[in-house]
Amino acid sequence: MINMVIDGRQVQAQTGWTVLETARQNGIHIPTLCHHEAVEPSGACRLCVVEIGDETWSKIVISCMYPVAEGLNVKTDSPRVKNVRRWILEMLLAQCPASPEIRALAAEYGVQTTRFVNHDPNEQCILCGLCVRVCKEVVGVSAISTIGRGVHKKIGSPYGVVSDACVACGSCVTVCPTGAMSARLDAIRGVHAGREAGKGGK
């Protein structure tokens, strides 16, 4: 048993747990977007940040991957944590205005409006990568991938070619935190294109 503190509360954790697991076991809520028990963590969304340390030294880490340690002191709602969360949510609000889940999450943390302009009113995807990971790690077919890199990154089928590897299990739609996957699955599987062209062409 490991003894540590979260938000001033003495809590216990087991060796090998993450801070997020420990918080959840103890009924302390930390928001997450790219984390899912079924797949390996990736640390992409950064919404689950917490502050560790004390007055003399502290740093921001992601709770979904940070391993627990004896005596760890964790704050889930410090000013630095709130600032990271606020800006992530404010940016997501501008990025995926079409996602009711993101709007609800932002509202939960007090972010109702965004100062940023939206470039695509229909966008819902936050590029958390959960769909890609579940398809690869759980389903084992890798029918979905990220295409492009950096600010041009998108979710699609590998190399942008319609994927016939998809087994229509729907796992990606289930794990998707925003509803974006249900809107794009057909394009990835080539249902429309496939029907019109008679076979799975592009």
Partner: peptide, 21 residues
Amino acid sequence: LEEESCGKCIPCRLGLTRMRE
């Protein structure tokens, strides 16, 4: 740096563009 961001994490992928704007 915006062009060189790998795009994996949200603060960098979205944040650098927003700062630049």
